[in-house]
Each structure stands twice: as structure tokens, then as C-alpha cells.
Amino acid sequence: MNLLNISGSPHVHSDESTKKIMWRVNLALVPALIVATVFFGVNALLVSLISVVSCVLFQWLIEKYILKQKPTIWDGSAVVTGLLLAFNVPATAQMLWIVVIGALVAIGIGKMSFGGLGKNPFNPAIVGRIFLLISFPVQMTTWPVPGFTMSFDAATGATPLGAFKEGALPADVTLWDAFLGHIGGSMGEISAIAILIGAIYLLCRKIITWHIPVAFIGTAFVFSAILWLINPETYMDPVMTIFTGGIMLGACFMATDMVTSPMAKSGQLIFGFGCGLLTIIIRNWGAYPEGVSFAILIMNSVTPLLNCWCKPKRFAE
């Protein structure tokens, strides 16, 4: 017979694992990937593929040759980073090589330099995206026009947010377009419905809780509604605000990243509130038309403080 195993209690485990969580997040991102492929064609698939492969590859290389530890690429976390990075860039042909640089920054600087999964203070995909946005401003803001196309050289146009920043919202963009995803933008953020499907799956699987997305989107909605009521000419209407740009993707997938968001529910509400507020501030008064990544990045840096301040309610108090 085998030796008896001895350990302290408990002697059972729920069978939850980091690996399962990460692959479920990947599954939740698939609807958005499908919509992106439908509207932006092969480019979207290619950019995603290259992004994912390079993220996984960089993680493997760093773990194997620099950190000299057992590579953990199968836990799926590099795939999540790769997909999210791809979702945050325009699906154009020139992104095919730029996204590799983004992957290197996301994995190398954003994640592995802090010690790997679980130790990074900032969401790696956002670190990668912001690096690209600052380094390649032209390429990162050249948006392909959505349409059912198989061509590699799609026509380019503006995002609703970009257009609004320049002057006014293009008249042909309807709320329905924004909901379905028939608008310009980064490949993963265009379709609210695809993102919501993924988010509902994550909620059912208890991988995310409602606190961050609701606080994020709610704050953005209320704050932009106040501004819109004050002056509907200068400010975008609140419904359009939350359905365009990266708010949906950011609130459901980026801000809810376990590693970089607060652990207590109260902390998560404050975190979401901060993200929503900062997003609208940057959109309306900042230099960039979109502020979701910056908002999340800033709130990521506040997370340790929120973890200190916001404690779960003690049973015995």
C-alpha cells in the first residue's frame, strides 16, 4: 500500500484552479473575438493570433532563460494578456508587427519583471497598450472601418469618440450599431453585446463579481448624464458614452482582473467608481479621446491602498 498522506485539515479542495479561471476568461473573450472577425475580417484574427503567440512565447522565454523556473504558459494567463492586448489595438495590417512589441512590454515589463502572475501591480495588457499608444500614436489611432470584408487593406475612419472629440458624433452612428459593434474602434471593444455575453458567463462562473463593472459603468453613466444635462451640445449623451469606446471591455474584462483589483467588495466599488470617474474626465478634458486604459492604470496603482483601507466585515465586530 502507499504511504499514508498526512496534512492539516482540510483534506478536500474545491478543484478550483488558476488554470481553470484563466481558460474560462479566455472562453469569455471568444464572443468579442468572433464579432471582431466578422467586422474587421482576417486582420482581427491575425492580430489576435500574433498577440497571443508572442505573449506566450515571451513568457516562456523569460521563465525558462531569465528566471530559470518551470514555465507556466499552460495556466492560460499569457493567453488572456495576449487576447486583451489584441482587443485593445485597431485591427489593421500594420498592427501585425507592432503588437509583438506590445506583447513584449506587456509580458516582459508589465508582468514578469514583478515576478510573474499574481505579482504585477498593473494590468499587463493595459501596460502594453499604453506603451503602444504613446510610441505609435498614428498606427494606434488608425481605425479600420467596420464592414464585412476579407481584404487586408481596409479603409480607415474615425471612432465615434474620436469624431466627437473633433467636433460632433457622425450622424450615421446609431445606438444599435454601438450595441452590436458596427462602429470603428479597437477590435475587442466595439460590440457591447459580445462583451456582455462573456461577462455574464464570468459572473455565472463566479470568476468576477458585479461590483467593479456596475460601479464602473454606473459612475460613467451618471457622471456623463450630469454633464449632458448641463450642456447637451458639448457632452456626449450618457447611453452613447457607455456603449462606445472601451468602457464595456474595460469594465468587464480589464478592471476586473483579479490580480490588479481590490479584494474586498467595498474596495471594488471604490475602484469601479474611480475608473468610471477618471474615464469621463479624460474623455472630456484630456488630450486623448479615450481614457479607459489610463483610468484603469491609475486605479491599479491605488489598489494596494484600497486593500489596506477596505476590509471585509468581521464576523465578530
Partner: peptide
């Protein structure tokens, strides 16, 4: 020649309290 397999926290101080 171990007589059992300890599967818990790798800490002597803790293992000592288990068995």
C-alpha cells in the same frame, strides 16, 4: 524510509503540531 508522506505546509513548526 519515510513512514508517511507529509503533504501540508512546508514548515517544521507547523508539521510538529500535526504529527
Amino acid at each position: 524510509k519515510r513512514k508517511s508522506n507529509y503533504d501540508g505546509l512546508r514548515s517544521c513548526a507547523f508539521e510538529n503540531t500535526v504529527y
